[in-house]
Design a protein around this nucleic acid. Structure first.
Length: 273
DNA sequence: CGTGCTGTTGCTAG
DNA sequence: ACTAGCAACAGCAC
């Protein structure tokens, strides 16, 4: 389930396991994920050392010592596993990197909406793929963000999902953030007042931070041989809770589609006006 | 057994 | 500027 907190947890896990290791071998099992993987990717990465793992929105970047970095996006079902060289290939494994110290990194993706790609240095992290402000920096950009968003006809839920304003928020946490903010997901951007917007930004930080903390606590007590990185789940207040009692009031949680995607909310706690 | 629907993302054609 | 459709697959209800 890769939104920002999951990607952050994956990056921290990768850092812990891969930093300073050397690439011995790269292998692709599938020619194509969302995009085709560079045919001779091994030539670009072999004998390179892992220098850092960086997250930007829902993107991860493995920084290598050579001229190229490796950008990954997990799509809907992308997962990394760290294991050892005795590993046997599983269904939907698409890509692996063998490092020294007997460390093997596996990329597994059922639906193949994710991808990995080489990106040439230098790394421009600020304007990376044209995405917007990092959620944990959004308070410093409150004025700029508000001046854009308060002109939008679109609903605030769709604005939160649009990576070009604030990046990293996906369909699950968008509902959770709006519930905490007591703002209707259907409220138009132009109807959001300054005070509400301030509450919204604080909820963005709160919800994502809470989820990262949860991920951070789940990652350190691994015990299986094949360690799956970033798999965890926070307790949701509204997501997937249709028909259940609201956490705050007696009302039942409602579910509606916005741009073809499910939104969960409480009509009483999140009034439209 | 099949058929149809849903799903954590993001690109693109219209 | 916006939305529907789509990518590929599993899991579920019926």
């Amino acid at each position: 389930m890769p939104e920002l907190p999951e990607v952050e947890t994956v990056c921290r896990g990768l850092s812990k396991k891969l930093l300073n290791l050397n690439v011995l071998k790269v292998k692709t099992f599938d020619k194509k994920l969302r995009y085709s993987i560079s045919k001779n990717i091994e030539n670009y990465l072999i004998h390179n050392k892992v220098k850092a793992i960086i997250r930007r929105g829902k993107n991860g970047i493995i920084v290598f010592s050579g001229n190229y970095n490796l950008h990954f996006h997990l799509g809907m079902t992308g997962k990394f596993f760290i294991t050892n060289s005795n590993y046997n290939k599983k269904k939907h494994d698409h890509f692996l990197i063998k490092f020294d110290k007997n460390v093997l990194l596996i990329y597994n993706d059922v639906r193949k909406f994710g991808y990995v790609e080489l990106i040439k240095k230098p790394l421009d992290i600020v304007s990376f793929r044209g995405i917007g402000v990092e959620p944990f920096l959004c308070k410093s950009f409150e004025k700029e963000l508000f001046s854009k968003i308060c002109k939008k006809e679109r609903s605030i839920k769709e604005i939160l999902l649009d990576q070009k304003y604030i990046c990293g928020i996906g369909n699950i946490y968008a509902s959770e953030i709006l519930f905490r903010s007591k703002i209707s997901p259907f409220k138009s951007g132009k109807d959001i007042c300054g005070k509400e917007f301030n509450t919204l930004l604080r909820s963005v930080e709160y919800i994502l931070n809470k989820a990262i903390k949860k991920g951070g606590s789940s990652i350190k007590n691994y015990k299986s041989i094949d360690e799956e990185l970033g798999y965890f789940q926070i307790e949701f207040k509204v997501y997937n809770k249709e028909g259940m009692a609201c956490y705050q009031c007696d009302n039942l949680i409602a579910k509606k589609k916005q741009s073809g995607r499910s939104t969960f909310f409480c009509k009483r706690c999140q009034p439209i006006n």
